[in-house]
Design a binder for these strands. Structure first.
Lengths: 149, 149
DNA sequence: GAATTAGTAACAGATTTGGTTACAAATGTA
DNA sequence: TACATTTGTAACCAAATCTGTTACTAATTC
């Protein structure tokens, strides 16, 4: 899900840069360096999460559903988690049934992990797509004529 | 790596509970609910990370290489990362070569992710195996006679 | 020398992932 | 209406990964 998260953020930054102009999956795929269907597949998650809106047909494409400053990396992260719901869920295998250490271990780890996960969430929630776009713009001083990628 | 992390922590808590008595991979596997070879495989990482020491032969097994209070979940996390070095590395696919957005995007995301990762690391570093063991003991009031699992 | 235990290679099965093709549905345009 | 464009989605393949397992070697104790 590394790549999914990176690609999703890439896409959102691109859409932010497009300022409301619909962008096709083909253009996005070209920028990201993947197949348009991969982009559309990923877009499904972003759409379900309410981060983007798509329109079919000629001249169609995808736009941001909210201002870039109102979309945080935590939103993106959550959107990606839809299809991968337990990244941070401490996985238990099939522990000894005679004693309940397995279940207790899982619950314990989840509890002890809690603060770590919360810390990460808080940090992610502090970064917006607008910030990512700005940071990108800083590092790409006109290198890509007319497009974010 | 969810399960690997959980199993590793499970093992370390067990070893902490054993208080210096070597524990065989068979016993650990039984507690975790997996195959002894899986345990030994995982133990390789823990050994390389300097968290445990093993001894072959009759009466052999594995013991903690340090006091449980000196082993944090961050240590465990790092040990697991050995074989999975880029969990937090923002993966780039194969972005458009014409403009360098791909590389810039990766670098940017890594930078913006940095604080989030640091926050998580700090939280993990604040939890020791001794604490996990204590927490487990609290929740297992004598349920498992003579062993942690 | 026998028994026990770790270390490790090798393999099978299941799952996941990314890329691809294919096609239906929607939408704008001539 | 007919056509081109674009999304939505299913299906499939190849590659990678992970877990469990077998098998064997090396080390250590008795």
């Amino acid at each position: 899900m590394n790549t999914r998260f990176a690609v999703a953020t890439h896409i959102l930054a691109y859409l932010a840069h497009a300022q409301g102009q619909p962008v096709s999956s083909e253009v996005l795929a070209s920028s990201v360096g993947t197949h348009p269907v991969v982009v559309r597949r990923l877009m499904s998650s972003l759409r379900e999460a309410g981060l983007v809106q798509s329109q079919r047909g000629a001249g169609g494409g995808t736009i941001l559903a909210r201002p870039p400053a109102d979309i945080t990396l935590l939103d993106v992260f959550r959107a990606m988690r839809e299809s991968d719901p337990d990244i941070f869920q401490v996985g238990s295998t099939n522990p000894n049934a005679q004693c309940d250490l397995g279940g207790v271990m899982q619950a314990t780890l989840e509890d002890m992990f809690g603060p770590a996960i919360e810390a990460m969430r808080a940090a992610l929630a502090g970064i917006t797509v607008a910030q990512v776009m700005q940071e990108l713009a800083k590092r790409l001083p006109g290198a890509c004529p007319g497009a974010a990628g």
